[in-house]
Design a protein around this nucleic acid. Structure first.
Length: 278
DNA sequence: CTAGGGATCAGCT
DNA sequence: GCTGATCCCTAGC
């Protein structure tokens, strides 16, 4: 396991919207170099529902054709085409029949390499993120349930009616909530974007953002250089990070290409790969 | 711990 | 065109 300290780029003066936007050449390098420098950077997604953002706390690097754990290992396909495109774009894929995961594309066009965003700390739009996470998986939760009227599909799936934002979990045993440290209004803050699929769910990232440009101020999905200090002090925070083997990777488990901020509670739990039973 | 679910792709016909 | 193994996961027992 390695370790190090990540000096974050200071947020320079400029237009407020573009302040701290990551330059494209930042990503024009091998993913394993980019990855640790992404820690602490801010991913924000702007939608009609509002803005939500996370500070990245855990990432994984996936090198190109030489990395057996990479989606690009067996060459270019329709699914992974974005990885072969220009750097600084989002590669979003669907997995396990229900989850989205997001990567940041690295290296010049033609060389597939990416950083998987594994976890973050929500720093803006927490209520929006909480709503998205509480909405669960409609397909699994709603089930057939009955006729429910023809053609009256509501994409937003309002679970509660009279109780407003009160979650249905209020009837759960209170010791369970206490054991998990869950707040009365849904998941604990640290769990909102803890894990690659949760991160995508909290930010409302789905298939339609595959290929989105993270370096474009006009893009709904943007990557900013660092957290603002907020205290008016010059310079930027220096964050300690650590590195270790990647999660759930069969081959290529020997390289320490998972990076996380030391001591961050939002870092997802490490689970070594276990072959699935049939 | 395991079930769940959809997409993907190698390998086959 | 079809089949079946696989997938970088999460929620709920």
């Amino acid at each position: 396991m390695g370790g190090g300290r990540q000096r974050l780029t200071a947020v320079t003066a400029g237009s407020r919207a573009a302040a701290g936007l990551m330059p494209r050449d930042f990503f024009d390098r091998p993913a394993q170099e980019v990855a640790p420098e992404l820690l602490g950077c801010v991913l924000e997604h702007e939608t009609p529902d509002g803005l939500a953002a996370v500070a990245l706390t855990e990432v994984e690097a996936y090198a190109g054709p030489a990395d057996p754990a990479s989606h690009a290992y067996r060459g270019r396909t329709a699914r992974n085409a974005v990885m072969f495109g220009p750097p600084g774009h989002a590669y979003v894929y669907f997995t396990y029949g229900m989850h989205f995961c997001m990567n940041v594309v690295c290296m010049p066009p033609g060389t597939a390499s990416a950083v998987l965003l594994r976890a973050g700390r929500v720093i803006a739009g927490e209520e929006l993120a909480r709503r998205r996470r509480a909405a669960r998986q409609p397909a699994a939760a709603v089930r057939p349930a009955g006729p429910a009227g023809l053609g009256t599909r509501d994409p937003r799936v309002p679970v509660d009616r009279a109780d407003g934002p009160q979650p249905p979990a209020c009837a759960a045993p209170r010791h369970a909530a206490a054991r998990h440290g869950a707040a009365r209004h849904g998941a604990a803050a640290r769990d909102l974007a803890r894990g690659p699929a949760r991160l995508c769910q909290a930010l409302g990232i789905g298939r339609e953002l595959n290929g989105a440009d993270l370096c474009d101020p006009a893009s709904p999905l943007r990557l900013l250089a660092a957290l603002p200090r907020g205290d008016g002090l010059p310079g930027s925070p220096v964050l300690p990070w650590r590195a270790g083997p990647r999660v759930g990777v069969r081959e290529g488990a020997d390289v320490p290409w998972r990076f996380w901020l030391d001591g961050e509670p939002t870092v997802s739990a490490y689970r070594p790969h276990v072959p699935r039973r049939r």
